[in-house]
């Protein structure tokens, strides 16, 4: 009996002291290369400004946990938009994000019969998992899939303008790679969505009330360790009869002010939004990441 006990103790000690796979190592936070966590997209997922990338929020590697928080301002010709959000990255593998979006119609609110400065708002909860590959190292590019649950807080109004629902889920898959030999990052995303203008004008409509497949992409050129410039594209569904929706474009510069702080300035073209054409303007974002 005594023998078996000590044998058991010995075996247990062996298990505890044996070299463990990486998952059992103590957590070690931080460690990503500058800018490779991306910025925070409008809906809160890490990536470019308009679209997610297959990267995970925060500065952690597969050995740690990371965190990011952002604030975004978009000022186009007739509207302004703010969003703020947080995201957590687990072992550079899983990302959970939250963003609150606010869209102010300013003077157009009056014309639309909503009243001056009428504002739409929406909450987005996102989850993303990097299923394979790596943005920088290894043979495969980073590949991720994700979903975004969106809940518009202006249900009565969005139904009145023709939307079928005030909540919806987007599903997407992204492939992203930083090609070091050219200092170029390319990312592509395919999204299934019913959202009208991200969901700010609700989900589905008189023209179409089902998910449609949309394409999004970013291209960036890294000029220095801290600075990248690039452009983005996002195609959009067109579900609402009364308000045509256009594809989106931007041209951006992202700068790692400090290890934990990235500032992004973009010129963006949102096309026609809520019946008013030519919505071009400035996108500004500050993101802190740990």
């Amino acid at each position: 009996m005594k023998f078996t006990k000590s044998a058991l103790a010995l075996a247990l000690t062996g298990i505890v002291l044996a070299p463990q796979p990486s998952a059992a190592r103590p957590l070690r936070n931080g460690g990503k290369l500058l800018l490779t966590n991306g910025i925070s997209s409008l809906e809160g997922a890490s990536g470019g400004g308009l679209t997610p990338w297959a990267v995970i929020a925060g500065n952690e590697t597969s050995d740690g946990i990371g965190l990011s928080a952002h604030g975004t301002l978009v000022e186009v010709k007739d509207y302004d938009y703010q969003s703020a959000g947080v995201a957590v990255g687990f072992r550079d593998r899983i990302e959970i994000s939250y963003a609150h979006q606010n869209f102010n119609t300013n003077d157009i609110g009056t014309a639309l019969g909503l009243g001056k400065d009428y504002a739409f708002s929406q909450d987005v909860i996102g989850a993303k998992i990097r299923v394979a590959g790596d943005l920088v190292y290894d043979h495969l590019p980073a590949i991720a899939v994700g979903a975004q649950y969106k809940r518009n807080n202006n249900g009565t109004i969005v139904r009145a303008i023709g939307a079928r629902d005030n909540e919806g889920v987007d599903y997407y898959a992204s492939v992203s790679r930083l090609f070091l030999s050219r200092s170029i990052l390319l990312s592509a995303t395919a999204r299934l969505t019913k959202a009208n203008q991200l969901g700010i004008l609700g989900f589905g409509g008189d023209l179409k009330d089902s998910h449609s497949l949309q394409f999004e992409g970013s291209a960036a050129w890294q000029l220095s360790r801290r600075l990248a410039i690039g452009g983005e594209y996002r195609s959009k569904p067109d579900n609402l009869g009364i308000a045509r929706e256009d594809d989106w474009f931007d041209a951006f510069a992202a700068y790692a002010v400090k290890r934990h702080l990235t500032a992004t300035l973009a010129y963006t073209d949102l096309g026609s939004v809520a019946t008013v054409k030519g919505q071009r303007g400035i996108f500004l974002q500050l993101q802190a990441a740990f």
């Binding site: 190592r25 070690r28 931080g30 460690g31 290369l33 050995d63 200092s183 000029l223 360790r225």
Partner: peptide, 23 residues
């Protein structure tokens, strides 16, 4: 670990920049 690799990359980047190697 991966964080060590990225750290070494940054040390090397700094050394290359000091030498004046284009980014």
């Amino acid at each position: 670990q991966k964080a060590d690799m990225n750290r070494l990359v940054e040390v090397l980047q700094r050394a290359m920049t000091t030498e004046g190697v284009a980014f």
